[in-house]
């Protein structure tokens, strides 16, 4: 009986390990980092936001986001592929072109809603 219990415990542990190690454990990045990092969102290249350094002025300032984007889906759509609304938008299609992952975009949006 005792032996069974042990084996079971062991097996479960091994299973858990296999499952977690096969899902890629991506390095966690918070939303602000995604927005500011030049290799990620680089939103500062074009948008004034959150007192970020050396912000560009190509796009509108990202402020009072909650009031202006009550619909989360609409905000996500703009980030996913800005060319849907404006065919020649200079804003990169972050989701469509796999510049950011879905997870990164969700975190980015959480962060934008604090602005």
């Amino acid at each position: 009986m005792q032996a069974y219990k042990l084996t079971l415990k062991l097996l479960f542990t091994v299973m858990l390990l296999v499952v977690t190690s096969s899902t890629v454990i991506a390095e966690e990045m918070d939303g602000k980092k995604v927005a500011f990092d030049r290799k990620k969102g680089n939103c500062l290249a074009c948008h004034v936001m959150d007192n970020g350094d050396m912000a560009g002025n190509i796009g509108p300032p990202l402020i009072v986001m909650k009031a202006r984007f009550p619909d989360r889906a609409a905000l996500k759509a703009q980030i996913w592929d800005a060319t849907v609304k404006n065919k020649i938008s200079i804003m990169p299609p972050f989701g469509k072109h796999k510049i950011l992952t879905d997870n990164e975009i969700e975190k980015l949006i959480d962060y934008l809603y604090t602005l």
Binding site: A45, C46, A55, G56, I88, I90, P93, K98
Partner: peptide, 22 residues
């Protein structure tokens, strides 16, 4: 490019504006 720009996006449409400090 992955970032989806034309030359004109920067040098015509947004001429005179700043990308970062450029």
């Amino acid at each position: 490019g992955q970032l989806n720009f034309s030359c004109s996006n920067c040098h015509i449409q947004n001429v005179g504006r700043k990308a970062r400090s450029e």
